[in-house]
Computed example of a mutant assay.
Amino acid sequence: MTQFDLPELEFSPDALEPYIDKETMVIHHDRHHQTYVSNLNAALAKYPELKKASLTDLIIHLDKVPEEIRTAVRNNGGGHYNHSLLWKVLIPGGAHEPRGNLKKAIDSAFDSFESFRDDLSAAAAGRFGSGWAWLTLDARKKLTIGSTPNQDSPLMDGQTPLLGIDVWEHAYYLKYQNKRPEYIKNFFKMINWDFVSDVYDKVTGRMVAE
């Protein structure tokens, strides 16, 4: 049976301070993400015929998941996928802006990195309640900005996520309380642009720019 596991953080829980505190990281990763993984495994245990399905297959082809567990897979599979990406997107220090092909694509699609940052920040701030803001590639491999409710993934809409900002309160409330815009502003100080740029190159099939 497919058994999904909680990925380990590639940095210590206090490494993102002062922007994200250690306690928030421990609760977010060790408890919230673990709960998504545990609930997903419990739901899939009822259907051994799904044992060969990858996480992305389950999310992309959600309509083929048995109705009895479809909501559980949507919420918990989405939560597992979204957070697994999040831990790759975040990094202590690192490049402050994208590079190479991704930088060129952002400048082309949004006029400038500053305009892109403002648009993605607005999408994150404007998401009512819990959810995510995303930089994605659509089916034509064009950059788009959007948001999803709860733990829904852009994969459900035929898009490939490159970067996600988690705006669930558990991601920031201990430090920022109701000041979501401040959290969003500081999120940009923690983005692993080298990782995001590499994913962009891989998905679009482009060579690394000189």
Rank of each mutant, 00 (worst) to 15 (best):
K142M: 14
G146E: 03
N82H: 07
I20M: 10
K175E: 12
F187N: 06
S108R: 07
E67Y: 13
F4N: 01
G146I: 02
I106K: 01
Y47R: 10
S54T: 06
M190F: 11
Y36P: 06
D201Y: 11
A139I: 13
E8L: 02
W168D: 04
D5G: 09
P161W: 14
I69F: 07
D30L: 05
K142G: 07
L85Y: 03
G146W: 04
L85S: 02
L6Q: 11
M190W: 08
D30A: 15
T144M: 10
A125R: 10
K141Q: 13
N76C: 12
L44S: 11
P7K: 00
K52V: 08
L58I: 02
R140L: 15
L155I: 12
K175Y: 03
F195G: 09
P66G: 10
F195K: 06
W132F: 04
D21R: 00
D57T: 04
A109C: 14
F116T: 01
Y36K: 04
P92Y: 04
Y47W: 07
T71P: 08
G131P: 05
R140M: 13
P161M: 07
S112Y: 14
M25V: 14
P13V: 13
L137I: 06
M190K: 04
K104T: 14
E68D: 09
P161E: 03
E169H: 02
S130F: 03
L6R: 00
A124L: 04
V203T: 15
A209S: 14
N186S: 08
P13T: 05
D107E: 15
R70N: 00
